[in-house]
Design a protein around this nucleic acid. Structure first.
Lengths: 194, 194
DNA sequence: TCGCATGCGTACCGATCGGTACGCGTGTGT
DNA sequence: ACACACGCGTACCGATCGGTACGCATGCGA
């Protein structure tokens, strides 16, 4: 979490880091601009010199939080070249690790989506687009497997991942991680044409 | 959504109904007490005469929203007596129907959980307890099947359900409903000892 | 040394938040 | 007809929200 729109001033950089941390840990609505400013050690105007508004900051945060999946795909490809199934299981394992890491508080995009009830809010539409990309990424991975309906399997896996992510906050993260891996394996296996 | 703590006065009843509707549609934090009062056609004090605070109202709302699952279990038992697998599939189908119904906005308990970042908040602990009961209910259903690890299958199914629920808000509800049923079938089948 | 542009924090803005003091209106027992 | 009790809304409270006007402080070119 160090990227996002380029920050010119050092104050802007501090704001960006603090906001990303605070938005994730406390939720976007719970984190006030005054609190962000205080914990950044800057004044409130420094926030508005670098970001259009709190919503703009939230939008940048959401977009930045969507980056990791693309990286996972790359590492999976590198780890298991010419092994589509291995790549898919690699990605799932990576996700399982992430959601059971200490400090995990659920998918930032999903949380943001819940916090903004208005479906037309920029944050909501951004989440929709980013999640669509993510599903596409999963579908691409699945497409190299010998299954009848790639898109359905991808959708089922995506549901599973989202479910594992959210249940970490309700049950136990460790259980969600292991159950995700097992369920994904079973789901994939049941769709594989042998 | 007509139950909850008994409402004595008519004003209290109106508040209760409006609050449940508003909390679900707009989220708890987004729905202000003034808005609840206005849309109920009552004054703000009428809210505080029937509920301790907004948090208390939110807590009652969450508890009331947790009721349906128990009903589903009963109807499933009645629909498929002496058929554990049929009962389980019946419950899943019922959930699939619920999450694809118009106006569905995700699981109220999960949404509430996301809206309150503090894990010690009464709403959060209530959600934890209620969801635990729910998982228990699913585990009981699964326990009558001939599978090796009942609890693991129940947990995987629960993850699937939560995932289906949340993806309705990100992708398409219809797809989530059908994918839920298919994935659950595949998961159950893969665990069945034949 | 002076003028100026730039980056920043202090102090404040109106709006809205959850919550409450208080008094009016009405139904009832006498 | 009167007094009382009860249910209710108006008007207000301090706190906090997102956002901004303004002035200081510093560094650079002349």
């Amino acid at each position: 979490m160090a990227d996002g729109p380029p920050r010119h001033s050092p104050a802007g950089q501090r704001v960006w880091e603090t906001a990303c941390d605070l938005f994730y840990r406390e939720g976007i609505r719970s984190a006030g601009v005054a609190e962000i400013a205080e914990r950044s050690g800057v004044g409130k105007p420094s926030i508005y010199r670098n970001f259009e508004s709190k919503d703009g900051l939230a939008l940048a945060y959401v977009k930045a939080k969507a980056a990791p999946p693309r990286v996972w795909l790359e590492t999976a490809r590198a780890a298991c070249p010419d092994d589509p199934l291995g790549q898919l299981r690699h990605v799932i394992a990576e996700i399982a690790e992430q959601i059971s890491a200490p400090g995990y508080r659920g998918c930032a995009l999903v949380n943001a989506s819940v916090e903004f009830p208005d479906r037309d809010h920029p944050v909501r539409v951004a989440v929709g687009e980013l999640k669509a990309e993510y599903l596409e990424l999963l579908a691409e991975l699945v497409s190299h497997l010998s299954v009848r309906d790639h898109r359905t399997l991808a959708y089922m896996l995506q549901m599973l991942v989202e479910g594992a992510s959210v249940t970490t906050q309700i049950y136990e993260a460790e259980k969600s991680a292991t159950a995700l891996k097992e369920a994904a394996d079973r789901l994939i296996d049941s769709c594989l044409e042998r």
